[in-house]
Design a protein around this nucleic acid. Structure first.
Lengths: 212, 212
DNA sequence: GTGCGAGCTGAACGCACGTTTAGCATACTG
DNA sequence: CAGTATGCTAAACGTGCGTTCAGCTCGCAC
């Protein structure tokens, strides 16, 4: 503890400490004193900057939402959607693995955001769902995909599968023996997902197109 | 509060109260006094029966693990695997939706178990992963499926997708407009999942086999 | 009917919590 | 050089925490 990351403002290092601790243990299980110690400041300074523990929580939420929005906006503009059918992009998990180092608290914070019923998490999920639907619709328009019998559920299924990799990162790492939320891990994961999305789960896996 | 569910032993109603509150807010954010009030007993009785708050947490973990094991054992014995290819069974989410009423705290507790890094959650996930792999292997042996290029990841992907429905139940309900973790909801969800697993995400959705 | 263990409570323990307050430096502003 | 805003700390506030303990009330064994 007592890090303070020296070149950051105290305000920022408090925010970072809170982000990491909230992500790991949940806001209810973390005390202002723990946050202060981790950030290398006095407990009073935390309240001085953020008013109250609830205020700090809000500030962290806003900060994280900003990071995610930025990440996702960048990810959805620089490449377009034809690459999607090859599984090269369009995956939130892929963006995460490339943008954040393995020890980043942000995946864990996303977990809390999505699963706590927090309105910020619901809003985030909704915006990702809308984006997923939009991509699907455009692919259908361009003849790259068919809408399926229940397009709303189909989009939700694709999004949920994508997020599952982030949510279940810990248990998956344990059973697979590698961390799927790293550039190397996500590659291996994505290759198989692409195969399933192309050919289904049951068939065509040992298809002649396999090169190895 | 002050329910006590009258015909349960005090011990059981304390356990139930703790289960519901832990699932909702996380053990760190719930006090012994809250649990006692919810269960309709005095705080001292909680400690009398379980020794400490940590002891109560362990007892709840064990209880839940027992319920899940029982559910899963029953689900994997009475039907066999050929139905799997039709998506009729083999889904943990489906077992959940049929076994637990919508207001059950168990899905939320599973969320915590899997995402908190708790060894009990890891163990549960491992056993489900092993079962998924076993089913896959048997299907391959019977010619119902092909192993894919990376069977370990393929099994993990299928399991993660299944669990995603439970984990993301709240946000999914919000965007879809229905609760996917009810018998009716899971039916609609499973129909689309079956289609994707059969034909992939991109194609064959408006296939001649569609009857509507 | 006396003794006793099990189930249970109310009051109290010390401790850590979130928050408030007074006051310390430092660095701009006039 | 005085005035003052900013960043920050030490100490203390009352509250609620997990836990302990003495003692109550049963129902059953002898």
């Amino acid at each position: 503890m007592r890090s303070r990351e020296s070149d950051l403002t105290a305000r920022a290092s408090i925010r970072n400490a809170a982000l990491a601790l909230f992500a790991e243990h949940g806001p209810g299980a973390v005390s202002v004193r723990q946050i202060a110690t981790t950030a290398g400041v006095s407990p009073a300074l935390v309240l001085h900057h953020f008013g109250s523990k609830a205020g700090l929580r809000e500030a962290v939420d806003e900060h994280v939402a900003g990071v995610f929005d930025e990440l996702f906006d960048a990810g959805s503009t620089d490449d377009a959607l034809p690459a999607l059918a090859d599984g090269d992009a369009g995956s939130i998990a892929q963006l995460f693995a490339e943008a954040f180092p393995p020890e980043s608290p942000l995946p864990a914070y996303l977990r809390r955001l999505l699963l706590s019923g927090d309105p910020a998490g619901t809003r985030l999920f909704q915006s990702w769902y809308d984006a997923t639907q939009a991509v699907f619709n455009q692919m259908v328009r361009e003849g790259l995909a068919t809408p399926g019998r229940d397009p709303a559920v189909r989009s939700a299924f694709a999004l949920a599968n994508d997020l599952a990799l982030i949510l279940l990162r810990g248990p998956l790492e344990h059973v697979l023996g590698f961390d799927p939320l790293t550039p190397a891990g996500i590659d291996r994961w994505a290759r198989e997902v692409t195969a399933v999305y192309r050919d289904g789960l049951w068939g065509a896996a040992a298809t002649p197109s396999a090169r190895k």
